[in-house]
Design a protein around this nucleic acid. Structure first.
Lengths: 182, 182
DNA sequence: GGCCCCATGTAATGGGTTACATGATTGC
DNA sequence: GCAATCATGTAACCCATTACATGGGGCC
């Protein structure tokens, strides 16, 4: 049930499906992803439900784009979703289910597994630190006096930094335990 | 693709679908969940693929149970999944997508949202601390000298403690920021 | 000419949730 | 007698992924 609401959140201003996909890839992919093959039908459905309207835009260069924008009912639906409180207990962490059964493979393979996890999350942490730094340099109101929309986005970044930092530490702690038994 | 492998991990010893569901509810639900309506057909499919065998058990009390156990091929499949490395970039955090758009609702509603998050994760943290403590009391080898299977499970608990602690701190930090602007 | 990017879509398949259906036993 | 728990399943629906299809423009 989240995708339609995420799309409503993204189409405050007229926006194309293709543009939305890029926002997923650049920003939201840390905690959500959606494919174009999902986005286009979902936008169409929002329009059929009266939660969004669309108009064609034919720019000078490039192919025509279909721009969607949410209606008043769309905004109401979005707010209802948010005011209904957090949607919890829906996490699916593939890599953790793997860790749970990691005793099934030999010790050296377990170490390789955690080294891969460590590499992946270290890089993600560096990316987020980079975003944090450049935002901090660009806006003197950062991080505690941002306007509402930016503040909400900054909250998600703030969690990313804390959480991924914890995951990197966890990888190092597990690697230490595994290596101490060789 | 994870569920069949998780089931293979759980049916090292003969186990019923109902029992597996309880393991999900008691242990794995922190990072994965599956319904009985998913588990029963998935077990049947494993049997059809030759990755598991089943036998009926008719105990003195209670209804008959169908016990599944993985075959050698099933074990090979499980190990292949683990040795293939971690499955990454598949997270879907519903509540974070909500936070991302939280600027759409008034400030007092935002505070309520974070208070709910804080309550939920604080309770989950307490549960995990409880598990950690009692395990520590029951086994002198805890946490660094456990046998392979238990060590792997302990690794998932270790991440839970670090990560949920980070989330609780995040909630407090965001609430502080939100309250400072009232 | 061939490849990548922009831009929109459909079709087939697989994974997951909700609702429905059955029947025995345990506890109040 | 009734509700809850044990135990197994099917059917319908919705959500997500992969593959396929189309067509213009820029670049080498």
């Amino acid at each position: 049930m989240s995708l339609p609401n995420i799309l409503l959140g993204l189409i405050k201003e007229p926006t194309s499906g293709y543009e939305i996909k890029q926002t997923f890839e650049q920003v939201l992919h840390y905690f959500w992803n959606a494919d174009l093959a999902q986005i286009y039908p979902a936008l169409k459905k929002l329009e059929q439900q009266g939660l969004a309207t669309s108009q064609m835009a034919a720019p000078d260069k490039g192919p025509p784009r279909k721009l969607y924008q949410r209606t008043t009912e769309g905004t109401q639906q979005l707010r209802a979703w948010l005011q209904d409180g957090p949607q919890l207990n829906t996490e699916r962490l593939h890599y953790l289910t793997q860790v749970f059964f990691l005793g099934e493979i030999p010790s050296n393979k377990r170490i390789t597994f955690f080294e891969r996890l460590h590499d992946y999350f270290s890089q993600q942490l560096n990316e987020l630190i980079e975003v944090d730094n450049s935002w901090s340099n660009d806006d003197p109101r950062y991080p505690d006096n941002l306007p509402d929309r930016e503040q909400a986005m900054q909250f998600t970044l703030r969690l990313g930094l804390l959480k991924i930092n914890a995951i990197v530490q966890w990888c190092e702690s597990c690697l230490k335990t595994l290596n101490s038994k060789l």
